[in-house]
Design a protein around this nucleic acid. Sequence first.
DNA 1: CTGTTAGCGCGTTCAC
DNA 2: GTGAACGCGCTAACAG
Lengths: 342, 342
Amino acid sequence: MSRPKQVTIVEVAAAAGVSIATVSNVLNRGGIRSSKETIRKVEMAAEQLGYRRNTMAAGLSRNKTFEIGLIVPGLTSYYGRLAEFLQLEAHHAGYHLSVFSSGGFDPTIERRNLEVLLQRRVDGLICHGLAMGKDSTRAIVNSGTPLVLINGWGWPEDIAVGAVNLGFAEACRQSTKLLADRGCDSLIYVGSKYSNVIDEQRRNGFHLGLGQLPEEIPHRIVEMKELDVDAFLREVMAGTAQRTGIIAFDDHVALKLLSAANRQRIDFPNHLQMISINNDYMAKHSYPGISSWDIPYELQAQMAIHKLLHKFGHSVEASEEREFEVPLTFIERETSGLTDTK
Amino acid sequence: MSRPKQVTIVEVAAAAGVSIATVSNVLNRGGIRSSKETIRKVEMAAEQLGYRRNTMAAGLSRNKTFEIGLIVPGLTSYYGRLAEFLQLEAHHAGYHLSVFSSGGFDPTIERRNLEVLLQRRVDGLICHGLAMGKDSTRAIVNSGTPLVLINGWGWPEDIAVGAVNLGFAEACRQSTKLLADRGCDSLIYVGSKYSNVIDEQRRNGFHLGLGQLPEEIPHRIVEMKELDVDAFLREVMAGTAQRTGIIAFDDHVALKLLSAANRQRIDFPNHLQMISINNDYMAKHSYPGISSWDIPYELQAQMAIHKLLHKFGHSVEASEEREFEVPLTFIERETSGLTDTK
DNA sequence: CTGTTAGCGCGTTCAC
DNA sequence: GTGAACGCGCTAACAG
């Protein structure tokens, strides 16, 4: 059941009384310019017939699709917003972005999406981390299609032309320092192995921060998935610490902890303090408000797209560093000692 | 700067010592089957040369893309998850889904996305609501590309082949009834005009529910955007009602109200009760837990994709109703009277 | 079973 | 400034 045949430039040419080459010239400006009269005729004919350019034919003929493929682990929270900004940025440059989710970090879906995108002959690829191994990726991507990584650390040059990474480690390092400054005499990082590379960055920052403290502080690292939140908090509060500081993997983790703390009537920020990452809606609108690190989505999206455009030969300025680090911004709220001014 | 030429079936044919038609036959099964020997030779050649099918050429030639386009207002929360499920469902049927966000309900971006998708000659379209007017849509979509609406009420047949709608009205009707049953002697719907059609459905349900109560109850409708949440709650609690029931547009709205209530130490569920819609992460993990209506993402995605497949001629069973309504499921938590059992 | 051939819709030379 | 002719990579009829 093929679609009822669409209007082509042939018919537009006939209706306008010119040749197809002329129509092509008129309809994508760039080339030779035609007489005002011809232009008008062609545009009218196209309009009336409801002509719509066939991307496939165009792409096939010029060997360029003006399409960028995006593969992210999911489409919620951070990933969703990132996708929106990337799409905006791409459009801004005359490209369009096709978004694919690899359903959690499933390598099978990921490589299927990659394959689809490469078969479409996208001009460029943006991927968030990569669940597949390096060899596997290399084997697939070696088609000359430039690939930019989002939050991918230490990938070899023959795979990715660049990476735009969020400064998670630095954020965690500073959080550690800050919580200690605020008088916490015990520190805990609550991570989420769901996203391994990212969790690792945070852990690194946590350790770095601990190492830089004037004196050693008791600390632990726990995993959210293996945690009975209520029991965990009860245990923490029963400990010897006067004031415990928690660094949460992200606002989702933080909200869970916060609710359990509320249920146990734990006093923020006197007995417990918390800082998390993402500065999601729920960090801002929970009670008490969760101190969190804000993500510069627009900047990150710009960097990523520009890296690609640069590779395409568009004269845009793009950072020369292959791995560019985007800093987060701390938004302080009540869970880390900001007084509730409301 | 064209991409370094890719491997084509011509080269595979040469390497395998067969004709291009044979290669084409082997590489996409469906058609005539070839001798074991030929198949092996072709597949080996393809593998070694790193052949990757060119979707554009295939689509052009067969006038069918196996691509479905999705346009949603955004990629967070409900929309993001919906997109994920749709993608899964599409893949399941041998299609792939290209996701486009129209950045809030911007009609300009929306029509640009639509245009891009139609230029790609997608086989089908799925749109969430539609910010553009009916005439505008009709003018654009009249290309024979089937369009299925998600949460679109009352669209004419010549635009959309069908719609899969969530039962927001029914959920709100029942919520109204339920809050009254729980002893609320004052009811408020807190809406969000951000998404007009959807807000309207909820309001309708609210009114319907009010009309079916044994006796009339004081009620109001307010808009979240125009609300100073703290002042609003203070005013509500200062009123004559013994127990106020709130129906929130969604969990985002609910969380905001909940935090303000917590700040004012308002007693859930004795003085205030609340029910919202979406059953997001934050509904489950806030304190107290927010009673909310759960969305059957998978079912909704299936219905939408199947409607398209049916139109494509794939023999799948699809509901005959043009507007299919998917019911929500109530998840009761502490904000509507469920005792905190923790 | 396999090879030949004619398009699919558009971009791009070249001559005119 | 305009038109005819060829090629992009692949599929679909036929023919052999």
